[in-house]
Amino acid sequence: QIGETFTPVLRESKFRETGVLTPEEYVAAGDHLVHHCPTWKWAGASDPSKIRTFLPIDKQFLITRNVPCHKRCKQMEYDEKLEKIINEEDGEYQTSDETGWVDTHHYEKEHEKNEEKEQSTAPPPAAPEDSDDDDEEPLDLDELGLDDDEEDPNRFVVEKKPLAAGNDNSGEVEKVRTYDLHICYDKYYQVPRLFLMGYDENRRPLTVEQTYEDFSADHSNKTITVEAHPSVDLTMPTVHPCKHAEMMKRLINQYAESGKVLGVHEYLFLFLKFVQAVIPTIEYDYTRAIKL
């Protein structure tokens, strides 16, 4: 945060040369994104002290809510079709072929996660340390529930269909998570920056460890950090932007090689395309994303 405070606001447009954006360019690109992908919206700061004056008050960051995420990245690795999509990605953000981390015989991601971690003192997410507290839950939710005797025939109920045979992993029920994605402007790195907040199928916020399951293997331990959101009073997992400019420049060049010139308003489409390599299973709208 200190770095941001002392970095002057970028004034000069140089996104083609270096991949960085001025706040004005970020707003223009954001307007373009909101217009073409209306699932994205502009949002304001959570309180006046958080307003960043180099951005319009009502356009502090971009948000899309309740984006479904049907599979964990790990499950995706089994799917050859999806693997192909990843491998099409270029550069260092490509998911590498280190297949070692996919352990097809043991479906125990928690154990593996801990081994990977330096400080393995943290218990696996399946057994949070406060599980003792849960026993002395002051409230029996079952007891509080209403009787289900009043049938409401007009309530829409999903037909429970059995999972397709090829689709299920060890008979597990599909757990649909949802994500809120935020694209902020990082003043220090002068690029858009993705923050994301996930919820489990019971709408409970995901722990950081659980969130890592939705980042492609190459990123979860390197480029994902938990940091203070610039506009909302919360800490959230974020894709660290230190390499964004470099990566964006490379993508812009690639785009230029195919004979097209990227307008700055299209910057976020390209950014979303790039982000897709990091969070391949989160199904946000990148249908407009630019084809390289």
């Binding site: 949070p128 409230l139 939710l141 079952d142 529930g145 009787d147 289900d148 019971n202």
Partner: peptide, 16 residues
Amino acid sequence: NANDKLQPISVDLSKE
């Protein structure tokens, strides 16, 4: 709730 029961929901946000 997620199990189709008429019940309140509890959330533990101590980690946050």
